[in-house]
Design a protein around this nucleic acid. Structure first.
Length: 865
RNA sequence: GGGCUUGUAGCUCAGCCGGUUAGAGCGCUCGCUUCACAUGCGAGAGGUCCACGGUUCGAAUCCGUGCAAGCCCACCA
């Protein structure tokens, strides 16, 4: 055993210990029968660790370390996501800084560029996971675009295609004019927008003096209008149905049609129909066989279908010009302020354009049914349970999932087109067309939604489609730990595809936690500058402190977590406390003078320790991380350090100290792996704590009578300390104690614990008596449960201070008694409350009354003197 | 428009199945170089548990309504 440094220095030891674990192969599963497995929600490969990851990974690592200590064959699969659009955007931005675009490179070269980017930054986030202490099995590290995952993607695609569950279709999809790609419904965010509703006048073709007023938020799309719709039962327009209107600013005529989609209550009741630029209008267009005219190109620029004057303008510029032109033409009826929502791209925040285009879709409505059933039947459970509602709401209203993206970085769609018209969907690149034999095949240009490969993650990472040993042993995984924000993106799709291809759900438990917010409760983001960097916090306070903080904030309800450096500081202080108590233990153990027998303090702490084992284990089973952390914090600081250690200074029982201290280290290890490993070693334990066994409570050591006795001692010490402090007894000055007891338990407790009291309360002489000839004069006074305590003061007592103290005390008892009296004289209470409750209240009343009597007596005596 | 969550000490929160003198951390006040720790020790101050109803012998805890805050979902131009 070496002497410990006085200062706890996390950064040095954390680095050393992680390397030791990794080199020692401690993260790989060992051969036990029972399996526990997690797959990491893969962070973006070129990203940096943010607070959300830190929380997610901490919670997973807690479970993993706990199960490893339980002796399970524990596997945590790490990996990263290629993050199609996000990564491509980052690389494009870099190229743009050099004045180039991806088109200057061409597809092949550009992808090479992204791969080299990936190689350069791919290690950053995994390195940061190591800093956090994540004990994942790095030998099994995966990437969503590695060979295995890519093979799984093709296998699933082809499988779904053959069943008709993947198909290509012409739809209005969400199009990001900046990313130049389609997006799925979940990739669109909504933003409140203080916009305008423009009321336009469309002249009638038959009578250009008459107008139809249509209301729109998107006047620039009017060039794509191919009809105006009114409600079929709208009396105002009945005569116009079948006639034509003149499209303003053009020489086009468009039909006036009847469709129930037109809302009579809204605006004038007539609505312009732009099938190519609005999903609803598209449906109307289909019902009425209207043509679709696209007026905006892929970048959101007006194209040749708009009059020359507008061609080449952005959406925004075109809108302004259209409005001013309409005004000039006296075709603008009115403008109204209008609150609506803008759809924006979740990657770049650009306003999304509904766009008609051919895309690939997964038939989610068909795949969703078994996925809903799995949760409904309880095969998969959400923790907390309420999140299953979000899941159901999503899955039961699920729509087709648009999976094709018009970007280059990603899994290329495994579909080839032959000149002969044949479409070939295959796992491997076909050499020739099976129909005509031509070798001139052209692969589909699109890549798949990033979330497509993520959806396969629980089984692709375990080796599927190969029948690997890992797959057999570790699928289904034991749990999924993630934030509620990706239930729709990820959880739902993993469940659906896991069931479709593995016939078993990918996990049985979904542990949902809240999102990290700043001190004000705002979302952390780089752009607002309120993001706290976990790596910075680790550097400053240590990974253990950060982990402990995150875990203790993860409440059972899964609320969002407001993080501040203050909290991490408090956790760091706790680690420091732990460090020092171990230091104390080492000093004492080197001393080599031990008490031969267990004392009251030993029996008490052993009893308390058994209970904290159970409490910690319980909390873990329920995924109550906050409760786990809080419980251990209180036990270690307020019981073990404040009382047991202080008492053990009078005579240390070596076995007890070591048992409890080592137990604490093991219980804390999942939360604070580094310091516990370090101290475990310093205390001379064999092996590593990372694979030490999880403590099991020995209920024979739970001893309530010793706990009761200790409670008496603590109560007395606190009472004396209070007197010392309030009566200004100098800290170094020893006091005397006269205890007048009315319960034998007090006499026994104080007799047994005499030396503790002397030490902890700064007391010299203790006189215990069942009765006194006269109560001591010139003393400060306290009343306990079953005893009266006098602390004689050698200089004249400050009467006013003492009276004030006792008056306060008296008031407290008075309040409580009146409350209890009211209760106990309530007939209903006596008749209906359970007898044990009544007894308890009676007992309380008796005790209070007695204490009140004593304090009152003492006060009277003081006032006379 | 639908749904969810939250409202407890100055701040951040814990209080699960109703009976606690309503707790913790930070902050605050007072006193301490007590030989593990001033990243510490001891003692305190501070709360009509958002409001109003209801259920109950009994509610911070269950139910309803209202107010306030936040989030998610939804194709009304």
């Amino acid at each position: 055993m070496t002497e410990m440094e006085k200062v706890y220095n996390p950064s040095e030891l954390e680095k050393r210990i992680y390397a030791d674990w990794e080199q020692g192969g401690y993260f790989a599963p060992s051969g036990a029968e029972k399996a526990f497995s997690l797959v990491i929600p893969p962070p973006n490969v070129t990203g940096a660790l943010h607070m959300g990851h830190a929380l997610d990974e901490t919670l997973q690592d807690i479970l993993v370390r706990w199960h490893r200590m339980l002796g399970d064959s524990t596997l945590w699969v790490p990996g990263t996501d290629h993050a199609g659009i996000a990564t491509q955007n980052v690389v494009e931005k870099k190229l743009a800084a050099e004045g180039r675009s991806r088109h200057d490179y061409g597809r092949e070269k550009f992808i090479e560029e992204v791969w080299s980017w990936k190689k350069r930054y791919g290690d950053r986030i995994t390195g940061q996971l190591r800093l956090l202490g994540a004990s994942c099995d790095w030998s099994r590290e995966r990437f969503t675009m590695d060979d295995g995952c890519s093979r799984a993607v093709r296998e699933v695609f082809v499988g779904l295609y053959q069943k008709g569950l993947i198909f290509k279709g012409l739809r209005i999809i969400n199009w990001c004019p900046r990313c130049h790609t389609a997006l799925s419904d979940v990739e669109v965010n909504y933003r409140d927008n203080a916009g305008k509703l423009w009321h336009l006048r469309y002249p009638l073709a038959g009578d250009s003096k008459r107008f139809l007023i249509v209301a729109t938020t998107r006047p620039e799309t009017l060039f794509g209008d191919t009809a105006v719709a009114v409600h079929p039962e709208d009396e105002r327009y009945r005569d116009l149905i079948g006639q034509e209107a003149l499209l303003p600013l053009t020489d086009k005529k468009i039909p006036i049609i009847a469709d129930e989609y037109a809302d009579r209550e809204f605006g004038s009741g007539a609505v312009k129909i732009t099938p190519a630029h609005d999903a609803n209008d598209y449906e109307v267009g289909r019902r009425h066989a209207l043509p679709s005219v696209t007026v905006l190109d892929a970048s959101g620029i007006m194209n040749e279908n708009a009059p020359m004057r507008y061609k080449g303008l952005t959406r925004e510029k075109a809108r302004d010009l259209v409005i001013s032109d309409l005004e000039e033409a006296k075709l603008l009826h009115s403008i109204q302020d209008y609150q609506n929502k803008l759809s924006v791209c979740y990657r770049c925040d650009t306003v999304v354009e509904p766009r008609l285009s051919p895309q690939w879709f997964v038939d989610m409505p068909r795949l969703a049914a078994p996925a809903v059933e799995a949760v409904r039947s309880g095969k998969i459970k959400f923790y907390p349970e309420r999140w299953s509602k979000v899941y159901f709401d999503w899955m039961e209203n699920i729509r087709e999932w648009c999976i094709s993206r018009q970007i280059w970085w990603g899994h290329r769609i495994p579909v080839w087109y032959c000149e002969c018209g044949e479409i070939i969907c295959a796992k491997e690149t076909p050499a020739v067309c099976p129909k005509c034999g031509s070798d001139r095949l052209r692969q589909d240009e699109d890549v798949l939604d990033t979330w497509f490969s993520s959806a396969l993650w629980p089984f692709s990472t375990l080796g599927w489609p190969q029948k690997t040993a890992d797959l057999k042993k570790y699928y289904p995984t034991s749990a999924l730990v993630t934030g509620y924000d990706i239930i729709t993106f990820w959880v739902s799709r993993m469940i659906a595809l896991g069931l479709a291809f593995m016939k078993k759900p990918p996990f049985h438990k979904v542990v949902i936690h809240g999102l990290i917010r700043d001190e004000q409760g705002k979302k952390m983001s780089k752009s607002t500058g309120n993001a706290v960097d976990p790596v910075e916090l680790i550097r400053e306070y240590g990974a253990d402190a950060l982990r402990f903080t995150l875990a203790s904030m993860a409440s059972a309800g899964g609320q969002d977590l407001k993080l501040s450096a203050h909290k991490v500081l408090a956790s760091r202080n706790f680690m420091n406390k732990l460090w020092n108590v171990a230091r104390f233990a080492l000093l004492k153990l080197a001393d080599n003078r031990f008490a031969p027998e267990k004392s009251l303090a030993d029996e008490w702490i052993l009893s308390r320790y058994q209970q904290i084992i159970n409490k910690t284990t319980d909390a873990l089973q329920k995924f109550y991380f906050g409760e786990m952390a809080q419980g251990l914090y209180d036990f270690v600081w307020s019981e073990f350090c404040d009382w047991y250690i202080e008492m053990s200074k009078l005579g240390l029982h070596k076995e007890t100290l070591l048992a409890v201290l080592n137990g604490i280290l093991r219980l804390l290890h999942p939360l604070a792996p580094f310091i516990t490993e370090e101290l475990w070693g310093r205390l001379g334990n064999a092996g590593r704590i990372i694979n030490a066994s999880w403590p099991a409570a020995d209920i024979r050591l739970i001893n309530k009578s010793r706990e009761t006795r200790m409670a008496i001692v603590i109560e007395l010490v606190k009472a004396v300390r209070n007197i010392r402090s309030e009566m200004n007894i100098a800290p170094g000055k020893k006091a005397d104690l006269i205890v007048l007891y009315s319960k034998d338990a007090v006499n026994e407790a104080l007799t047994e614990a005499k030396t503790y009291i002397q030490q902890l309360a700064g007391v010299e002489k203790i006189d215990l008596a069942a009765r006194l000839a006269a109560k001591p004069r010139n003393s400060s006074h306290a009343v306990l449960d079953g005893a009266e305590v006098f602390v004689p003061l050698d200089n004249l007592i400050d009467l006013q201070a003492e009276i004030a103290r006792l008056e306060k005390e008296k008031q407290k008892y008075e309040d409580e008694i009146s409350w209890l009296k009211k209760k106990l004289t309530n007939k209903n209470f006596i008749e209906k409350a359970p007898p044990e409750v009544i007894d308890k209240e009676r007992e309380k009343e008796k005790n209070c009354a007695e204490k009140y009597r004593i304090v009152d007596e003492q006060l009277k005596a003081l006032k006379i003197s």
